[in-house]
């Protein structure tokens, strides 16, 4: 069993503090749901764990089985078993999906995977996800629909076999059938020794992939923790109740965040 531990994590983006002391412990074979209003730090937490250079960790620690994750480069984190399924997967023109997948699989192996085995693994995974075979030969995410991109993230997760998968709104862009297929693959992998951290606004994902733990992240802090009952409550009542806990909900400011760069003189609140 492995443990991913986040302690008192403070993260700033462009000088503005987004996470203000997050504690979270995730073990393999557990599934954690991270909920909260938009713009309150969910994606920031996931990106910071993976090490996106725009997210600056100002305080706190992240460890994987006691090893300092913050001292690792992004690719090291991946090779140690962390995986981030992204909300907006990047498009890489001119690089085929299969060349990329093979390079990624080989990156964590001593000996490169032989071509036959790779093709077998790829075909199997494509089949499980009900994907179009041609996607392997198309350029990475280029011209993929929203749903195809999300399936492609899960395809990567399946082939890379991480210890911990952080999935950021993996259900957006997927129709009901596709969500069923993706959930089956995720559940399959949960049978093994994998931990999951799911970010989603929608109960439908959590019904298909029931979490063992639920956290509510508001204004950069985890303000409530529990199980499925918390999801049901949010589904019924929204987030207004957290104000009774003495927490301010951060209004979504992403649009204004862009304005900040353009105007250059907006006062940080």
């Amino acid at each position: 069993m492995s443990v991913l531990k986040v302690e008192n994590l403070h993260v700033a983006v462009g000088g503005e503090e987004i996470l203000k002391g997050v504690d979270l412990t995730l073990s393999t074979q557990e599934t954690h749901a991270l909920m909260g209003p938009n713009g309150n730090g969910k994606s920031t937490l996931l990106a910071a764990i993976m090490g996106h250079p725009r997210y600056e960790v100002t305080e706190g620690s992240i460890t994987l089985d006691g090893e300092d994750v913050l001292a690792m480069s992004v690719d090291e984190r991946s090779r140690k078993g962390l995986f981030l399924g992204m909300q907006n997967p990047q498009e890489i023109p001119g690089v085929t999906n299969s060349d990329f997948l093979r390079a990624a699989m080989n990156a964590r192996r001593e000996q490169p995977l032989n071509l036959f085995r790779f093709i077998k693994a790829l075909e199997g995974a494509i089949d499980d996800l009900g994907m179009d075979e041609n996607l392997a030969h198309r350029y990475l995410n280029e011209g993929f629909s929203g749903g195809e991109k999300k399936r492609n993230e899960i395809l990567q997760m399946k082939l890379l076999q991480p210890k911990f998968a952080l999935l950021d709104e993996i259900d957006s862009g997927l129709d009901v059938d596709a969500l069923g297929v993706v959930s089956n693959v995720i559940n399959d992998m949960r049978q093994g020794d994998m931990g999951l951290l799911l970010v989603s606004h929608y109960e439908r994902l959590y019904k298909l992939v029931p979490p063992t733990h639920v956290h509510v992240l508001v204004d950069g802090r985890i303000v409530a923790e529990g199980g499925m009952e918390l999801i049901n409550k949010i589904n019924a009542e929204g987030y207004e109740w957290v104000k009774e806990l003495g927490v301010d909900i951060r209004e979504k400011e992403e649009k204004q965040g862009i304005m900040l760069g353009v105007c250059g003189n907006k006062v940080t609140q």
Binding site: S73, D75, R77, M86, Q90, I92, V95, A104, A107, Q156
Partner: peptide
């Protein structure tokens, strides 16, 4: 783009080269 490729285990050199 670099972050995306590196998050799958490719080094910065490999990612840039790709």
């Amino acid at each position: 783009q670099l972050f995306y490729l590196m998050s799958r285990g490719l080094t910065k050199e490999q990612a840039t080269e790709m």
